[in-house]
Design a protein around this nucleic acid. Structure first.
Lengths: 227, 227
DNA sequence: ATAAGTTATAGTCATATTGACTATATGTTT
DNA sequence: AAACATATAGTCAATATGACTATAACTTAT
């Protein structure tokens, strides 16, 4: 993958990459060049004439962070007249969810560094990136209740408490443990791995995994994830 | 409002305008010029350098249809490489809901005609407009269950049956009348107009209106519109 | 004037779901 | 063995749901 030449001058991509380790995190990159050199910002870049928006988003995310093949979905376009300082640029925002442990974050391309930031400790962002991040969070909170996308943030096998912590962190609420357990298990989306966690200094919890097949068959009928 | 000169060459707007008379409708315009002359399509146009995306959407909708000051929200950008035949164009899709009776649809600008089409009888659309329309419908069906935006499609005062028909038409489902009534009234979003419909050849129903103030105060607490 | 048709609106009831709990089980660490 | 930490099971009153039945209030046809 080489640095593209034939870019559309007035269209860019920005990505909000969510991760989860103890709490909800966002991946930011430090700009290595340009007018925002040295500042942390959402990973972004230009779109070429021969790639779709989705393809551009995947490419840019890979170039900047080394992250590949992940859940990546468009949020929407942001097009205030003066959102970008030097010229008129409309940006198309994407969001993604990755298993923070699964990938090595490797800064590249125009990024001199890349790192996870807790959602509660975001540095001052350039352009309208804070607005984009806020929008992404709102969408995430909505989506997570409609579809089981939250699982994209957890390891393959997880305990019910990990899942509960994830939802609590995303939705900023406190949930009752037995009730959460009853509700989640009642949905039949989880498969018992017949395995327990280890290395914990207390009673080990059962490990579960999300079953894509079960989900697909459930989706036919109506169901909402109301927590 | 004059026809703009300084347009961004590779960015356009397309609008999905929903209306409701008996069933869910979409507003299409007949192209008066250009490569799709004579074909029905979503109202769309180019964005100028000195307006935001939202402003462009409002302007274009007004120029093409005479529709002004309405609920208009961005869906997302569509950017497949060959979605537009003559050059690379990314389009930003918007959707809107209007009270079909409230406005006079007046074709203008590059539209030689404008008309409502039942959602079940959409003519063959150019470019990726069918894809945009499908996406808009999906979003509409999701949104309508989360927020009380459905009211934008009804007259100021309406009966419970009209509201039920609206939901049935949007969601393509059949609802039980007494249960629907109980659920909707239980939400306390409707205000009794102390008035009855007239001109009907059967027992007249009470008229209700949606109360924005009540809604705002309810919004503080959680609530979902699950039908 | 009465019957038939049409929609509005009220009410019933068995079942399922929720939220707020308590209780017990199964581990680890001191 | 006691103290602890978390897992997991179960209780229960209150509420919501879905599938109904029943009655009310009009209009129009006979």
């Amino acid at each position: 993958m080489s640095i593209p030449q034939n870019i559309m001058e007035d269209l860019s991509i920005d990505c909000v990459i969510f991760g989860f380790t103890d709490e909800l995190k966002v991946l930011l990159v430090e700009h290595a060049e340009g007018i925002s050199k040295g500042r942390w910002a959402l990973p972004g870049g230009w779109i070429t004439y021969d790639e779709s928006l989705d393809e551009a988003a995947y490419r840019i995310l890979y170039l900047l962070t080394g992250v590949e093949n992940n859940f990546l979905e468009q949020l929407q376009a942001f097009g205030a007249v003066n959102r970008f300082p030097t010229k008129r640029v409309v940006t198309v925002a994407y969001y993604s969810m990755i298993r923070a442990g699964d990938v090595d974050i490797v800064a590249g391309y125009t990024a001199s560094d890349a790192n996870w930031f807790s959602i509660r400790e975001i540095p001052e962002l350039p352009y309208d990136h804070q607005k984009i991040l806020d929008y992404a969070l709102t969408q995430l909170r909505g989506k997570v209740k409609q579809e089981p996308i939250g699982f994209n943030l957890l390891p393959e096998k997880f305990t019910l408490l990990q899942l509960q912590n994830l939802y609590e962190s995303i939705l900023q609420i406190k949930l009752d443990k037995p009730n959460f357990r009853r509700k989640i298990l009642g949905m039949k989306l989880l498969v018992d791995c017949e395995e327990k966690q280890d290395g914990v200094s207390h009673r080990a919890a059962k490990l579960y995994r999300f079953d894509e097949e079960v989900y697909q068959s459930l989706k036919e009928h109506k169901f909402v994830l109301d927590l």
